[in-house]
Amino acid sequence: MSLIVAAFGFGLVSMSIIAISAVGFTMQFGITNMINLAYGQVMIASAYAAYAVNNAGVSIWLALPVGAVFGAVFSFLLNRLIYAPFQRKGTNLIGMVIISLAVSLVIANVMLPIVGYYSVSYHQNPGTTYHLGSIALTGAQLAIIAVAVVVMLAIYALLRFTRLGKAMRATAANPTLARNCGIPTARVVDLAWLITGALCGVAGTVAGMNSDSFSVASGSEFLIPIIAASILGGAGSPYGAMIGAVLIGEMTEISAAIISPEYKQVVAFAVLVLVMVLRPQGLLAKRGALAAAG
């Protein structure tokens, strides 16, 4: 029993990381109507960017913003240089998926010779371990949870209260209508890629902090719980992704404690399959992963 409670504690950390990444992932989908399969690779590239700074002797907490900025700029350029031109050309949905998978492959293999094949880990002081019953979390893990809470609140405030947030929601709902209403959609899309890219960078760095070590191969591993959480919540819905992250984070950690850690991803996948069969639109979205009816 205490094992499960302890796993629940790790689940809090997992869900935090998944939430940050899944919100970015699902917002990219919401705004641009495309699934960016290179997201996991951008996460890992950002984690390495933070590692470069960290390795030079800077605290990982100061390196975290570097990861965020790297992720933002990288994602922005990715959209500007590759995705947006293809979309303007009229490439269809499946074309864009193939393109993003190809991009993911290119990023991973350009990174390999640069950062090497071996796993690395951050130089960090995990801090004191805090106990609450069977739950035992390090100071660093608590800090990750705090980062996630701050980021979620910031996203909520952005979407709820700012002009930019409203413009983003309008653009996501209907780009043509938004443009006709005088919303500078091109700029909104640029900003959306910067913001979601920053989330991606933060997520990659905290994911690196929470794991013993990471390597280029971790990129595709990151992606599965993110996809599962996004689709579970309803593709394109940031709040849905948050709920999805909570569920996926806890389910994977608790099942890891009960069954075996190797099957963490399998549990995330099982959830994904169930959602696809029972409610493809997800918990919160109108359309989600659902095809046009007919």
Partner: peptide, 17 residues
């Protein structure tokens, strides 16, 4: 029932799993 790009992703994830 899935949209074409989600079909692709579901199958990608299946392959990894």
């Amino acid at each position: 029932r899935l949209r074409s790009d989600y079909q692709a992703i579901a199958m990608l994830v299946l392959s990894v799993i």
